[in-house]
Design a protein around this nucleic acid. Structure first.
Lengths: 199, 199
DNA sequence: ATTTGCCTTAACCATCCGGTCAAACCATGT
DNA sequence: ACATGGTTTGACCGGATGGTTAAGGCAAAT
């Protein structure tokens, strides 16, 4: 992101809050202006329309979330360590940006075209599936279709966090209990995956 | 649901479509009236307000989805068969009611209070975790915290479907490819779970 | 034929919302 | 002191939106 003046900064952060809380349809330009402590006219002076402001916010949040997730996985790590690293990182990152992650998921579902503009490449899979291949040939793990493996891991990390408000109510957790439960999951999911991959 | 006149039926089904496509904020009463082929005033005559109509729709869809998911698991099935049954049923049901499931997820996230009115009980867990206990004592599977097991299974079934528009784009599937992939998952997830549960 | 009660509609209302504009504000350079 | 140009604002606009109302239509009951 280019450098922003203080006014632009305040507006942008106000817009992030409003859009994350209310979504595109629910967000109000006046509410964004109020949060930023300026007039609605000034808001339009900086960001000409709701759509443009929204797209900038989505773009920013998308990059923020995906950059934190896409940290380099060090080459020297073993396959097992890589799996463990990916799981921990996914859970920590998504937990940290919970609201943003849900906002992204929700809005991108409604307007999937936005994704097309944002997605360039995604090498994460190859980096893991290469390590998987090597491990497989050493006979240390069983054979499995890599895309299913990836989707299994990602699902077990993301869904319990994305759907937490629902899951909490359905399984009868308290919020603090569920936070602890999600921390446990870092080890639990790792164990679940590695146990499944035994030859 | 009580019996509805033909007019009410048409209106209700029009409302379902509109709300599912646009969500509460995006839905328009006029659009619902148009779909149903009546005037906006007639619409308000039957369902007094947008909120009331919305809640009835949510309630209906919630029951429809959860009732199909909550089919009885026959007692005589073995633990393995039960796991397989749950996975297949989850994937089939959610796949069948894809749009409704996403609508529910999305709207319930924004207004979790609605859930409180809808949730009475949820015995699904006990029915499976009892079978799990028995199997564990026979030494046929390893020990695992049942809530993690359940959440793992549910996540691997739900997330790949809920997030399909995103996943398709990120993993570079076509829609038909992805449909086949999701069918494969019924066996893949089952195998993944059972392999993990080996002692 | 008239009443009764359900249904439908066109017209209308108040409010809200995104966006515009002309005027004012203010710091800087001359 | 004055002009310049970026910044800020209150007032306003057009259109959309949820909701209301008064009047009428229509079919069955009287």
């Amino acid at each position: 992101m280019e450098d922003l003046t203080k006014a632009e900064e305040k507006i942008f952060s106000a817009a992030k809050e409003e859009f994350i809380e209310k979504g595109f349809d629910g967000a109000r330009m006046q509410a964004i202006a109020d949060r930023a402590g300026i007039s609605k006219a000034a808001l339009h002076y900086y960001y000409r329309s709701k759509e443009k402001l929204f797209k900038k916010v989505v773009n920013f949040i998308f990059n923020m979330v995906f950059n934190s997730v896409k940290q380099k996985i060090e080459e020297k790590l073993s396959f097992e360590e890589k799996v463990h690293f990916i799981i921990s990182m996914y859970i920590d990152t998504i937990l940290q940006h919970k609201h943003m992650a849900f906002f992204l998921f929700s809005e991108l579902m409604k307007h999937p075209q936005i994704l097309d503009e944002l997605i360039k490449k995604q090498e994460k899979i190859t980096t893991l599936s290469a390590a998987y291949q090597a491990e497989l040939e050493k006979g240390k793990i069983r054979s499995i279709e890599p895309r299913h493996l990836i989707l299994n891991v990602v699902s077990m990390c993301i869904y319990p966090i994305l759907g937490s408000p629902l899951i909490i109510r359905i399984l009868g957790f308290s919020k603090t209990e569920y936070d602890a439960f999600l921390q446990e999951r870092k080890e639990q999911v790792f164990e679940f995956v590695m146990k499944s991959l035994r030859p």
